[in-house]
């Protein structure tokens, strides 16, 4: 079951999640996607909603349909990387905005980042 916000349309959140998973490599370029029904079952959402999300993803060029065989992840790796950068940038912007709202300076923010990243290695 996928975690979702209850105050935003579901299909938008499904689109966001699937894009993230494509970027993260869960679905490889050119790989065949699970069917609408399969994914809807896993996510615990209405198949119609999942269908709409798939249509949106097609519009965005992240998926393409191969006749009646099914839906596939785009082969366009550049596009995926581009999307990934876009998303990273959005996350980064949010992080910075949140940090700044706490009143941290640029140096303090860098410190936090450094500690966190070396902490991961340790």
């Amino acid at each position: 079951m996928w975690q979702m916000d209850s105050n935003r349309p579901i299909y938008i959140q499904l689109v966001e999640r699937i894009i993230k998973e494509i970027i993260a490599g869960k679905y490889q370029p050119g790989e065949k996607m699970p069917t609408v029904r399969e994914l809807a079952e896993i996510a615990r959402v209405n198949p119609n909603t999942m269908q709409k999300a798939f249509s949106q993803l097609e519009q965005k060029g992240m998926l393409y349909t191969d006749r009646t065989v099914g839906r596939y992840v785009t082969q366009d790796q550049a596009k995926i990387r581009e999307k990934g950068k876009q998303l990273a940038r959005q996350l980064g912007e949010k992080f910075l905005a949140d940090m700044r709202a706490l009143g941290l300076t640029e140096d303090e923010i860098m410190e936090v980042l450094k500690t966190l990243m070396s902490g991961d290695k340790a």
Binding site: S6, N7, R8, P9, I10, Y11, T49
Partner: peptide, 15 residues
């Protein structure tokens, strides 16, 4: 539709 309501109200149906 659930979609319309969420977009319009910015809330869950339950709320």
């Amino acid at each position: 539709s659930v979609e319309n309501i969420r977009e319009r109200e910015g809330k869950s149906i339950d709320e």
